[in-house]
């Protein structure tokens, strides 16, 4: 069962990498990278169950956090051009 899950996740990773490389817009790439990060978390979790090393699950959780913060930072940066601004509107 975990093998089937791993195969499915790997196929999804192939699709995400294809979209990240082909583009064509910036948002395609951002979504592809975000999705690939999620799939990395999942594949680590599956590997943890395959190998019986359950302490890897903590690392998978930390990856999820890093991925989320990274994507939010990229989006904010792309929208505003800097990190320290909130609110709406452009200068």
């Amino acid at each position: 069962m975990f093998t089937a899950a791993a195969v499915a996740i790997l196929i999804t990773m192939v699709l995400a990498v294809t979209r990240a490389i082909l583009g064509p817009t910036v948002y395609d790439r951002i979504v592809a990278v975000n999705m690939f990060g999620t799939k990395t978390v999942l594949i680590i979790a599956v590997v943890a169950f395959l190998k019986g090393r359950y302490d890897l699950l903590d690392i998978a959780l930390a990856y999820a956090l890093i991925n989320f913060i990274g994507i939010v930072a990229v989006l904010k940066f792309f929208e505003y051009g800097e990190f320290s601004r909130g609110g709406r509107g452009r200068p």
Binding site: V17, A20, I21, G23, V26, R29, I30, A32, V33, F36, G37, T40, I43, I44, V47, R53, D55, L56, I59, A62, Y63, N67, G70, V74, F78
Partner: peptide, 28 residues
Amino acid sequence: FGVAMLVSLFSLLCAGVFTVMDAADVAF
């Protein structure tokens, strides 16, 4: 911009490979 995104992806993959090789904190 795409290059920066792809390098981030590369890094995440590298961390995944490290994790699979049981070097958890290097991966972190």
